[in-house]
Design a protein around this nucleic acid. Sequence first.
DNA 1: CATGAATGAGTATTCATTCAT
DNA 2: CATGAATGAATACTCATTCAT
Lengths: 211, 211, 211, 211
Amino acid sequence: MTDETDGRVLRGQATREVRRQQIKEASLQVFADRGYHATSVSDLVKAASVARGTFYLYFQSKESLFLELLDDLMMELRAGIKGVDPSANAGVRDQLPTVIGRVLKTVTDNRSLTRILFREAIGLDAEVDARLAAFNDVIHEYVIRALRLGRAMDVVRAEVDLDVAATCIVGGVRYIVQRHIVADEESPDLERLSRGIVATFLDGVALPSSS
Amino acid sequence: MTDETDGRVLRGQATREVRRQQIKEASLQVFADRGYHATSVSDLVKAASVARGTFYLYFQSKESLFLELLDDLMMELRAGIKGVDPSANAGVRDQLPTVIGRVLKTVTDNRSLTRILFREAIGLDAEVDARLAAFNDVIHEYVIRALRLGRAMDVVRAEVDLDVAATCIVGGVRYIVQRHIVADEESPDLERLSRGIVATFLDGVALPSSS
Amino acid sequence: MTDETDGRVLRGQATREVRRQQIKEASLQVFADRGYHATSVSDLVKAASVARGTFYLYFQSKESLFLELLDDLMMELRAGIKGVDPSANAGVRDQLPTVIGRVLKTVTDNRSLTRILFREAIGLDAEVDARLAAFNDVIHEYVIRALRLGRAMDVVRAEVDLDVAATCIVGGVRYIVQRHIVADEESPDLERLSRGIVATFLDGVALPSSS
Amino acid sequence: MTDETDGRVLRGQATREVRRQQIKEASLQVFADRGYHATSVSDLVKAASVARGTFYLYFQSKESLFLELLDDLMMELRAGIKGVDPSANAGVRDQLPTVIGRVLKTVTDNRSLTRILFREAIGLDAEVDARLAAFNDVIHEYVIRALRLGRAMDVVRAEVDLDVAATCIVGGVRYIVQRHIVADEESPDLERLSRGIVATFLDGVALPSSS
DNA sequence: CATGAATGAGTATTCATTCAT
DNA sequence: CATGAATGAATACTCATTCAT
């Protein structure tokens, strides 16, 4: 009874997980296309080809599913960003485009989720807002630490207002993402974007002599 | 068609406009506080102290009122930005903080509207999205033209990727606005923010020698 | 503006109250016929010939309407019972059938409500249960007080277990109501029932000599 | 059709019956605690530790199981009551408390079932109502017969309205059960209750001289 | 013009029952 | 026989909009 039972149970759990993913993926598309509020549970179950009740077998509510999708993206992004090792001192300037490129790649690979994150994830409810704010703060702090490190290594100007600069950098990357990746641009030239971002934020747009 | 009638009509139109404004202002507050979706028409008419039917005498729908508020803000912002005369060649570098400061000031003075713009105006429906996109494009084009002008005047590097740089700049300012002004910060130090933004985007964060 | 407005407002409130009653009466019938659980809000609005939304304009929920109906009956019954003045010493024995008759009359006049009270009002939720229990306790206490008074007046045996006797009396009357009034009996002979009840509880069924 | 087959069938039937009982007992508890409507099939299968499907292998529906539980109680009670032999002429008055006591004992021993019977079994559907009514009628008739017998034996007054008196008696006992046994009273004093009931119904509460 | 009562399509969620394994 | 994932009809309730007064 043991092996057979275990087998059945395991298979059951495996299928369960498969089903969950199936619903999540279908829902992801619908949310990305229609937006959170415009998406009804009917839309979701239709897209996932399951019965209404089945949906609630796997997710507590429409909102909790959405939250899960959000968490997924934030994890994914955080992983893509944290992959960077800012302490590698050699050739920070040369490394940076790669780093930024990786972030942009992560985002591009998760276009639907990112679209949701940028278009819908705000003002939904306090819970989501708090989670997003926390995520943003993590990114912000990460960039500030990077700048501080750069300053210590004498590659970042001493007089830079770290907080403002970090905000500009994060905001700039975000908006690049929003304009070039979330919007339906087919295959964004990530390399050009990365280089452009790095150039802008490292050296600015002004001619040095213009000071 | 007599004078008296005209008078009545005019008076009527005058009070009509006054009423409209009353409702708009009250609604603006409610939208800013609660967010678009969490705000019901009941909330609006209660805040404006008018009957439900009256609301529909002045606005086609909840959504159209919201759209109008959005348009108002976009006009206001556009005015604040367009006020800058980029052709004044003398001391662009010195002028810029003032210009940015003015934009931040406009935003701060319309905090409620801006909050709505940032928190709710996305993903509402195609109409809103289109209008927002158009607005963003206008700003984007404006910055690109400014950069191009700067390049002609030899104050902007020739090798700068105008499109990417403009996106970074706009995104940076937006995120500054989002973090320091939309969020409930009491009295943001607009001057420091302006100087920080200008410094970051003109000269970058890297030490020139690090090239 | 004053008189006219007041007039409108008053008329409005009057109509409101009328509507409420209309819905309550229709709902009462449906509840009495179908029972609480088997009655859907759709049934109620259909019976009252109002739109679904209208229902919720007048009642917070299906349950709250039901509670209100319950309260109405309990008030009505309590009034019918409290009308009795047990201190009128002359001819208690002769008075009693009248008193009981009045209670039965009240119940007969509110047959629908009573049917609900007996058939549905139990186990609905803690709130209802508590209210019913309180009501039952009031009745119980009332009867005990009456018995105690009777004892003081030397018309009730000294050795009677007041609590048990009161429970028997209340239960007996309740069951009479249930069998002869709530059940669809056309026109119960209230006088016969009253006399029978009084005889049973005053003198018992046993021949005195059988002790 | 071989012995072996019979054996298997028998064994199967035996375990089948055992399973049924398991489920019934578990369900009884849940129904008594939560009430019929608040109890879901999920609750039942969880309490019985069987799969959802298994439940429907043994019972047609949630309702049919409930009906069965009801029948069980009614049989049990009927047995407890019928155990009394009213024809034993000697000392009816002395016997009665014992008889009533036995009924109360039966009820106390099946408190869960009784609780269900009193709290939930009414207004469920026509089927249940009919069965309950039939049961009540049986009891009623039984009491009437007893009274008639008593009359023949000259221990019951001739002028007693048998039907009304029987209803009072049954109602009284029912309400005693409801107040003292169904409600969570720890260990009701069955003897006192029995004596009180008998005294009340045999001799009434009035002093004989008060007639 | 102003009112606010009335509307009803639409929503998320539950749960008794079925059925493939 | 046993399982538990799947089903979908049904439910209470909301809210933007209309319309008679």
